[in-house]
Nucleic acid binder design. Sequence first.
DNA 1: CCTACCGATCGGTAGG
DNA 2: CCTACCGATCGGTAGG
Lengths: 204, 204
Amino acid sequence: MRADDVREAALTLFATRGYHGTSMKDIAAALGLRAPSLYNHVESKQSLLQEIMLGPLETLIREQQAVLATTNDVTEQLRRAMEAHVRFHTRFQRQVRIGNNEIANIEEPARTHLLELRRRYAQPWIDLIERGVAEGRFESPSPHLSAFAMIEMGMGVSLWFRAEGALSESQVAYYYGDMALRLVLTRTGGDTPARAGMSSPSHA
Amino acid sequence: MRADDVREAALTLFATRGYHGTSMKDIAAALGLRAPSLYNHVESKQSLLQEIMLGPLETLIREQQAVLATTNDVTEQLRRAMEAHVRFHTRFQRQVRIGNNEIANIEEPARTHLLELRRRYAQPWIDLIERGVAEGRFESPSPHLSAFAMIEMGMGVSLWFRAEGALSESQVAYYYGDMALRLVLTRTGGDTPARAGMSSPSHA
DNA sequence: CCTACCGATCGGTAGG
DNA sequence: CCTACCGATCGGTAGG
C-alpha cells in the first residue's frame, strides 16, 4: 500500500460522490482497509483534496509553457495551446471535475493558491489573442472574453469525453483547435490557414 | 418568513460553501432562526437542493423554446439562442454554480430527471446546427461537439460575470451570439450577416 | 417559533 | 495494519 494508492482511490470517490460525500471510511473500504490505517499514508482528508486539486493544475501550466515554446507563429501557438488544453481535459477528467466542483471545500491558503494558478494559466491565452490582434491576424472585441470562452469551451470536453467513444482524443483536440481559431481569426485575412477538419489533421 | 426566504438563503449558502458544507443551522442563522424552525417551511435540506437545481433549468428550457419561435432563419435562431443562453447565465449565477457542482449530491430520482432536462435543453442546439448544415449555411464536422462547445462556452459566463463590470449583460450576450455563429458559419457564404461586435449590436 | 433531544456519522487519535 | 474510542456535528423529530 502506497500513498499514491490512497490518492487514486480518493480521486475516483471525490469525483463521483464529492468531497464531503466521501468519508475516509469509504476510501479505506475501496482499498480493503479500515479508516484509521489511511493516516499511515496521508496526513488528512483535506491534504488529499489539495494534492488532487493543485498537482494537475501545475502539470497543465507546464504543458502550456512547453507547447507555446514550439513556434512563434501566433496562429499556430493558439491552435497548439487549444490542442494541449483539450488533451489535458480528456486525460484528467476526474481531476478537472474535482478542481471545478470542490473550490468551496479547499481550505486556505491552498484555495488562494489555486485561484492564482488558474489566473496564471489564463494569462497566456489573453496575451496570445492580444498579440494576434496587434499583428492583424486576429480580431476580438475583448481578448479577455475570447480567452475565457476558449478555455471554458475546452474544459467542457472533460464532461463528456469517453475513450471508447466515436471520436479519439486527437480528433477532438484537432476539432477544438480549429474552433479556437474560428473564434478570433480575421475572416478576410489571406493568411488564414486551411482548416484541418477532423478527417485530415494538419499535424500529428 | 416564507418558504422563498429559506430557499433564497439556501441558494446563497449552497453556492458559496457547497451543499454538504452548509448546515441547516447555517441557513437558519442567515434568517435569524434556529434550525428546527426551518422545517415549518421546507420539507428537508435535500428538497431545497432539488428545487434550486430543477426550477431554473425548467425556466431555461422555456426561454429557449420561446426564443426559437421568434424566427425561422437558422442563423438568427442560433444567435438568439446563444444570447438567451448567456443572459440566463448572467442572471442565475448561483443556481448555475449549484447545478454544476452538486450533481453528485442530488438524490434519485431527481438526479435522473435533471440529466434528462439537460439533454432536452441540448437537443435543439444540435438540431439547429444540423439544419444549418443541411441548408448549406453552417459547416460542422460534428453538430454534437459544436453544440456542446457553444453551451459550455456560454455557461462559463456564470463564472466571471459581474453586473458592475465593464461589460453589460447585453454586450456579453451579443458577443457570445457572434462567437456562436463564428463556430459554424460557412466562411465563403455570401449570406453571412455582418457581425455586430459589441459597440453596434444588431438588435435590442 | 422555540428548547430539548435523538441516532448516526464524521475526521482523527491512542495505543499497540 | 488493527480495535477502541473521542468530541463534534449533522439532519431531523417531539412536544409545546
